[in-house]
Deep mutational scan, measured.
Amino acid sequence: TTVHLNGVTYTFPNPEEARKFVEKLAKTLNLKVEVHNGTYHIE
């Protein structure tokens, strides 16, 4: 599972880890999250 954040790409072997990371980040920084083909894009 891949996460794109400010031009940096993070790869998680575990989709659940990626989801938790994204949710925590989005909540902390009040960001918008979009998912395209299983890839998270955070703005």
Rank of each mutant, 00 (worst) to 15 (best):
T11S: 11
A26V: 14
N37G: 07
V22M: 04
P15N: 10
N14V: 05
T2V: 13
H36N: 07
P13S: 11
K20R: 12
L25P: 00
N14D: 10
A26G: 09
F12S: 00
F12C: 11
Y40R: 00
I42A: 04
F12I: 01
N6Q: 07
N6K: 07
E23P: 00
R19C: 06
T9D: 06
P15H: 13
K24Y: 15
H4Q: 10
V3L: 05
V35H: 05
V35Y: 15
N30H: 10
P15A: 13
T9N: 07
T11H: 13
V33Q: 01
N14S: 12
V22T: 02
T39Q: 15
Y10S: 01
V35Q: 05
R19A: 10
H36G: 03
E23D: 09
Y10L: 14
N6W: 14
K24D: 15
K24P: 02
V8P: 00
N30K: 07
L31T: 04
V8I: 11
T39W: 05
N14Q: 04
N6G: 08
E17H: 09
E16G: 07
V33D: 01
T28L: 14
N30E: 08
F12M: 01
H41V: 13
T1N: 09
T28A: 08
K32L: 07
R19Q: 09
V3H: 00
A18E: 01
R19P: 00
E17A: 14
A26W: 05
T9P: 12
V22N: 00
Y10D: 00
V3E: 00
G38W: 02
R19H: 07
L31Y: 06
R19E: 08
E16P: 03
V3D: 00
I42E: 03
T39A: 15
N6H: 08
E34I: 14
V8W: 10
L31R: 01
L5M: 13
V33Y: 08
K24M: 14
E34P: 01
F21N: 00
N6E: 07
H36I: 15
V8F: 11
H41T: 08
A26C: 07
P13V: 10
T1V: 11
N37S: 04
N6R: 07
R19F: 09
V22A: 12
G7I: 02
I42Y: 04
Y10N: 01
P15C: 09
F21Y: 06
L31E: 01
A18C: 13
L29C: 15
G7D: 06
H4R: 12
A26L: 14
P15I: 09
P13L: 10
Y40K: 01
L31F: 07
I42D: 02
H41C: 08
E16L: 08
N14G: 10
V3Y: 01
L29Y: 13
T39Y: 06
L29A: 10
V35R: 02
T2H: 13
L31C: 10
Y40D: 03
K24G: 11
Y40S: 03
T39H: 15
N30T: 06
F12K: 00
G7A: 05
F12R: 00
H4V: 15
T28H: 14
H41F: 15
A26R: 11
K27N: 14
N14E: 05
V35K: 04
N30S: 06
L29P: 10
G7R: 06
T2E: 12
H4D: 05
V22P: 00
E16W: 09
T11R: 12
E17C: 11
V3R: 00
E34K: 09
E34Y: 14
G7Q: 06
T9H: 08
G38E: 04
V33F: 11
V35I: 14
E17N: 07
H4C: 09
E34N: 09
L29E: 12
L25V: 07
H36W: 09
T39G: 10
G38I: 02
F21G: 01
T1R: 10
A26I: 14
N37K: 04
H4L: 14
L29R: 02
E34F: 14
H41W: 15
H4A: 07
H4T: 09
E17T: 12
P13K: 12
A26T: 11
F21T: 01
G7C: 09
T9G: 06
V3S: 00
P15M: 11
V33P: 01
H41D: 04
K24C: 15
K32R: 11
V35M: 13
T2W: 10
G7F: 06
T28S: 07
H36R: 13
I42R: 01
K27I: 13
N14K: 05
Y10R: 04
E16A: 09
L29I: 07
T39P: 02
K24N: 14
N30F: 07
V22F: 03
Y10I: 14
T9L: 13
K20C: 12
T11D: 07
E23W: 04
P13T: 11
E34H: 13
N30Q: 08
E43H: 13
K20M: 10
V22Q: 01
E43N: 10
Y40F: 09
N6M: 12
F21Q: 01
A26N: 10
F21E: 01
G38P: 02
L29N: 11
E34S: 13
T28Y: 15
V8H: 11
P15Y: 07
V8Q: 11
P15R: 10
K32E: 03
N14F: 06
N6C: 15
R19T: 07
E16C: 12
H4M: 13
L29K: 04
T2F: 12
T9A: 12
K20F: 06
V8N: 08
G38Y: 03
H41I: 15
T39E: 15
T28F: 15
K32D: 03
T28I: 13
V8T: 10
E23S: 04
T39V: 15
H36T: 07
F21W: 13
Y40A: 04
R19D: 05
T11A: 09
G7S: 06
K32V: 08
T9C: 11
N6I: 06
K20Y: 07
N14I: 04
I42G: 03
E17G: 09
H4P: 01
K32F: 05
N37Q: 06
K24F: 15
K20S: 10
K27Y: 12
V35W: 12
T39S: 14
A18R: 02
N14A: 05
